[in-house]
Design a protein around this nucleic acid. Structure first.
Length: 431
RNA sequence: UCCGGCGUGGCUCAAUUGGCAGAGCGGGUGGCUGUUAACCACUAGGUUGUAGGUUCGAGUCCUACCGCCGGAGCCA
């Protein structure tokens, strides 16, 4: 007898199959009872009829509790009354283990309780859907990059210093060499990679010891950094737009079930798959001040500013050409105005905030050195980075995508903590 | 770190003016042949976050601490 996954039952209508999984729920109605089985690929309703199975199998009703692990045999058939359109008429049930006192019921729970039980909460339908969308987003990103000649180039996670000077770092003891720091971005290493491979990306966890406590922050999150030689500011934004629109179409096409479970408004995602807007930082500040924001011309956008800026836009918005003081030392200055840098942040619609930060990089040795001196950076630690401007320097650009931010937007969930299996935040390290 | 809010059975919440701590879910027992977070009946389950204080009397008022939630800043 074939072992069949829930996702494939439509191919087995009228056939006897075996299924393996966990009891999601059960409902009893006297001489008939329903067993809701989940198997990782989906959920299916099983039906047990008193006069069609042995007494032993029928009485499993009283024994099986939520999340008990089982193997069942039965007949797949189409039935409008079944959620999902198919159900399995159960002939036999083999119990692997009876789960006692599973803490998470199908009713409502509080955030703290669910987070304390994150290892079990992952099994819930909504979490299942979000994690599958996470996978789809991850897969679409690598697929796009692969199709566009980017080579995976893994940056180190243990680094001797900060890639971006200001932010707080997690430090770990490192043998006789003092402290190492957990990477907050592999970007600088990617800049070395492009001089070998042309276009590269890394994709992995990065760490920020910021004391941020918002619905958009994790201390450990996954970032895809891409970098490309001979690509300048405008083209850099084009690549980002293509990438994001590719992800949107893939998620809409392949994750209808998941989007439905989490009640995502798919129309909003569809509308975002259109040419993105580009606005300069100065025009953005003008616009925001006009709307009543007290934002400064030399500051970053606040959370409220991001909402205001995108509230009437169906598509993400690039905010480009920032005052050089507000951005990192490695960004290339705008030829037309040396007080600005050729950086762009991509702000997602619906208030989901910044999902990409990118820029053309400074490729002139002297200008870069001057900028690093101004920031009092330890030049000896960055000699290798300066070398890249000494031996065949070229114009180049790159950007970093926050995976969880992107998933939060795609899935339309209110908090980033649900978009990663085991979130790490300022106040939570467990489970 | 700052501002605001909340801590009551395993879970989610009620408790009027300071006056007998209660319900739903989950657990247990029984019932029901098409349920959709099924339903019905019965049942067990409590040092109201901790430590003080006010009061005849505190879940409720006051103080401190702890924990959590929401927001801000910083950022992806």
């Amino acid at each position: 007898m074939d072992w069949v996954f829930v996702k494939d039952v439509k191919d087995y209508d009228g056939k006897e199959v075996m299924m393996k999984g966990w009891v999601y729920n059960k409902r009893s109605s006297g001489k008939i009872w329903f067993l809701i089985l989940r198997d990782g690929t989906g959920i299916i309703q099983g039906i047990v009829l008193r006069n069609e199975v042995s007494e032993d199998v029928f009485n499993k009703r009283d024994e099986l509790s939520q999340e008990s692990s089982i193997t069942i045999n039965g007949l797949i058939h189409k039935d409008k009354r079944a959620p999902g359109g198919y159900e399995i008429v159960i002939r036999d049930i083999t119990v692997h283990q009876i789960a006692n006192d599973y803490p998470i019921s199908l009713k409502e729970h509080g955030v703290e309780f669910l987070m304390d039980n994150r290892h079990l909460w992952l099994r819930s339908k909504k979490q299942w859907a979000i994690l599958r969308i996470r996978h789809a987003v991850y897969y679409a990103i690598t697929e796009y990059l692969n199709n566009n000649d980017f080579i995976r180039f893994d940056s180190p996670l243990l680094t001797p210093n900060a890639c971006e000077g200001t932010t707080t770092l997690f430090s770990v003891p490192y043998f006789n060499l003092g402290n190492a720091y957990l990477s907050q971005s592999g970007q600088l290493y990617l800049e070395a990679g492009i001089m070998s491979l042309g276009r590269v990306y890394d994709f992995g966890p990065v760490f920020r010891a910021e004391k941020s406590k918002t619905r958009k922050h994790l201390t450990e999150f996954w970032m895809m950094d891409a970098e490309a030689a001979f690509v300048e500011h405008e083209e850099n934004m084009q690549i980002q737009e293509e990438l994001i629109r590719y992800i949107i179409t893939k998620v809409i096409d392949n994750n209808k079930v998941e989007l439905d479970i989490i009640e995502r408004d798919i129309e909003k995602l569809k509308k975002a798959d259109a040419p993105f807007k580009i606005i300069t930082h100065k025009d953005a500040v003008d616009f925001l001040r006009d709307k009543g924001s007290e934002i400064s011309y030399v500051g970053d956008l606040g959370a409220q500013d991001e909402v205001l800026l995108t509230e009437n836009s169906d598509v993400p918005i690039f905010v480009e050409k920032w005052p050089k003081e507000t951005k990192s030392f490695y960004m290339k200055r705008d030829k037309e105005n040396p007080d600005l840098v050729l950086g762009a942040d991509l702000i997602a619609p619906e208030g989901y905030g910044e999902i990409i930060g990118g820029s053309q990089r400074e490729d002139d040795y002297d200008l870069l050195l001057q900028r690093m001196k101004n920031d009092n950076m330890p030049l000896e630690d960055y000699q290798w980075f300066l070398d890249l401007r000494k031996y065949g320097s070229v114009p180049h650009s790159g950007f970093g995508v926050g995976l969880e931010r992107l998933v939060t937007w795609m899935a339309g969930v209110p908090h980033i903590r649900e978009t990663i299996p085991f979130p790490r935040t300022i106040y939570r390290l467990e489970p």
